[in-house]
């Protein structure tokens, strides 16, 4: 098969993963939130309600696509695509195993963050084009939040890049292979140097993906539906799907950067590589489960508190931590 054909297949596989993931994650969210709230979640369609989300997707596909009269038609139509495409792009650099990945980018980490940072542009477009005041406020919040947290998100992971010496996500995973003293996994989360990094990264990542307690741009109790208020049918479906997709990407990055990616400690390299994709997905879903746990329990912060946290705390702390970890890494080696 030609190189182009293989690339096309890989892109299709990423698309399939993104869509399949959306369905699985929505079901998972309903079940996790349900059990956190002492109820059962969906139970009736399919075994334990497993087909509920599939049915919901079918419902979204068959619903009338309403375009309100007052909207900016072009922006309104392309905004879901502008949200969806970068989210799909971000899958390109994720290493599911040493061989399973769309491309092997040397700047994989930077690339993924760049792709993610395009999403709020689409959200702002959606908010502006809807000519709805709630949507506009949601879009503005997304933009403000994005600018404030893009910086600490990237700064927070720099210590890892400094230690590994590469932005290639595969190389970062390889650096975490094996164990220390034959017991402790060599994951970066086990390294005290990266504990502040992990905290900074987690907070920024939750903000970047609009997760509770930072879901400012759609804050349903404040802004009704936020930027998605005027969207219906599959346009809404795309906005909704990208949100879950972004959450998956951020969780996958967390696994790659801190939890050893596709590798397993305590087992031979060959075995670990064979079960790479499975390990990777399992770890990612565990991280997602924690994010859903947070979503089910925490209240939302206020917009000014969010901005203060970003500009006055996270950015200075990440800068300081870069300096400190730089010195430590230099002295250590």
């Amino acid at each position: 098969m030609s190189a182009l054909g293989i690339s096309a297949l890989k892109v299709l596989a990423a698309l399939g993963l993104m869509l399949g993931n959306g369905v699985v994650m929505i079901y998972m969210l309903r079940k996790v939130l349900g059990h956190l709230h002492i109820r059962l979640g969906p139970m009736h369609v399919g075994w334990k309600g497993t087909l509920q989300t599939v049915m919901d997707v079918l419902k979204l596909l068959t619903k009338e696509d309403i375009t309100p009269r007052a909207v900016d038609r072009w922006l309104f139509r392309i905004a879901p695509a502008v949200v969806f495409i970068p989210s799909l792009m971000a899958y390109a650099a994720l290493p599911f195993s040493d061989t399973w990945r769309v491309t092997n980018l040397d700047s994989g980490l930077l690339y993924t963050f760049t792709a993610l940072s395009l999403v709020p542009l689409g959200i702002l477009m959606a908010g502006w084009a809807s000519s709805n005041k709630w949507s506009l406020l949601g879009g503005m919040r997304a933009a403000a939040q994005q600018i404030a947290y893009e910086v600490p998100l990237l700064l927070s992971v720099l210590p890892i890049v400094m230690l590994v010496g590469s932005m290639n996500l595969g190389v970062i995973v390889e650096a975490q292979r094996g164990t220390v003293l034959a017991v402790i996994p060599r994951w970066f989360i086990m390294n005290p140097l990266f504990w502040p990094t992990f905290v900074l990264y987690s907070i920024s990542a939750l903000v970047e993906t609009n997760q509770t307690p930072f879901d400012m741009s759609e804050a349903e109790s404040e802004l009704v539906g936020g930027f998605a208020t005027e969207y219906s049918a599959m346009k809404f479906g795309l906005l909704f799907l990208s949100e879950f997709s972004n959450q998956f990407i951020v969780a996958a990055l967390t696994v790659t950067l801190f939890f050893g990616g596709w590798t397993l400690p305590w087992v031979p390299e060959a075995v670990s590589n064979t079960f790479g994709p499975l390990t990777f997905m399992l770890k990612t879903y565990l991280v997602i489960a924690v994010m859903m746990w947070i979503r089910g329990t925490f209240p939302r912060v206020r917009i000014d508190q969010l901005m203060q946290l970003g500009w006055q705390r996270l950015i200075p702390i990440s800068l300081a931590w870069i300096v400190i970890s730089g010195v430590v890494i230099k002295v250590w080696s």
């Binding site: 709230h37 002492i38 879901d215 109790s221 979503r295 089910g296 329990t297 925490f298 939302r300």
Partner: peptide
């Protein structure tokens, strides 16, 4: 009141 702040967790416990 919890729902107003965006916290969903406590609502159904209170309902119980």
């Amino acid at each position: 009141f919890g729902l107003d702040t965006g916290a969903m967790g406590q609502f159904l416990y209170a309902m119980r």
